[in-house]
Design a binder for these strands. Structure first.
Lengths: 129, 129
DNA sequence: ATGTAACCTGACGTTAGCTTTAGATTGTGG
DNA sequence: CCACAATCTAAAGCTAACGTCAGGTTACAT
C-alpha cells in the first residue's frame, strides 16, 4: 500500500510547517509523489525521510543549498548521478568541514563538562558554607 | 606591554569586519579595553581571543544569543558568576545538544566517506570502460 | 597644513529561511 | 447540501547577522 498522505499529515509527522514544505519544494528538496487536478499534494514515505534527513543536516550546520547538493546521494542510485567529479568535490569539502567540526565539537564538549563540574562544585560549596 | 590595537588590526587578525565587531559590541560580546576622547576603540589580546571563540562556537551552530550565554565562562572568574544554577542549566542543555551533534556528525562523516568512495569507484570505472 | 588612511555613527539594504496574511478553492461529515 | 476544515497561491512581513552608504572626525607622514 503506497498510502499517500497530504501535506497536513506530512508536516505534522516531520515537525515542520506546510509552508516550509512548500518552500523546500521550490528549492527542489522535496516533491509530492503526485498532484491531482485540484492541485492538492500527495506524498509518499520517502518525502518524510527526506524531511528528516534535511533536518538532521541542518542541525549539522549545512544550509539548504548544501543540503540540496548532498541529499540526492541518500535517495538516488549513485550510478545515475550526473557530474560525479563535481559531486565528489562538494563531498570532500563537506568532509573537511565535518572533520574540523568534530574536533571543535569534542573540545567544546570537554569545556562544557569542565565548566559544569566547576560550577556545581562552587554551588555545593556555597550551600555548605 | 599591554600593547593595545585598533579595530582595523583586530578585525584583520580575527578575520571579521569592523562592522561585525561593532555589532558584537552592541550585543555585549566584545568590548574595547579603552576608548579615548575621540571615540577610537583600543583592544587588548582578550578581545582577539573572544572573537576567535565566538567564531568557533558559531561554527558549532550556536547563535549569538547562545554564545553570549556561555562566553563569559571562558573569560570570567567562575566564582564571580551570578546565577550559577541557571548557568549550569544552560550548559547542560548545550552539552546535550553537543552530544547529539557529535553522533549525527560522526554518522554524517561515515556517509560522506562511503559516498566519496562509491563515487570515485564509479568515476574510475567510467574511465576504464 | 594638507592629503589620505583609519576611524566614527546612523540609517538603510541584503540574504536565508521561513511565517503571516488574504482570499479563493476543494473535500467531507452530519 | 452545506458548514467547515484542509488545501491552494501570491505577496508581504519577519529575524538574525551582518554589509553598504553617506557624511563627518582624527591621526600621521610629507
Amino acid at each position: 500500500m503506497s498510502s499517500l498522505i497530504q501535506i497536513g499529515e506530512l508536516s505534522e509527522r516531520a515537525g515542520v510547517s506546510h509552508r516550509t514544505i512548500h518552500y523546500y519544494e521550490r528549492l527542489g528538496l522535496v516533491q509530492p509523489a503526485e498532484r491531482e487536478g485540484a492541485g492538492y499534494r500527495y506524498y509518499d514515505e520517502t518525502a518524510l525521510k527526506r524531511l528528516e534527513k534535511i533536518a538532521a543536516l541542518k542541525r549539522l550546520g549545512l544550509n539548504l543549498d548544501e543540503i540540496a547538493a548532498v541529499l540526492p546521494l541518500y535517495f538516488a542510485d549513485a550510478t545515475g548521478i550526473k557530474g560525479k567529479e563535481k559531486v565528489v568535490e562538494i563531498l570532500k569539502v563537506q568532509l573537511a568541514k565535518a572533520e574540523t567540526q568534530l574536533h571543535e565539537l569534542t573540545a567544546f564538549k570537554r569545556d562544557l563538562e569542565g565548566n559544569i563540574a566547576r560550577m556545581e562544585e562552587l554551588i555545593a560549596q556555597a550551600q555548605r558554607g
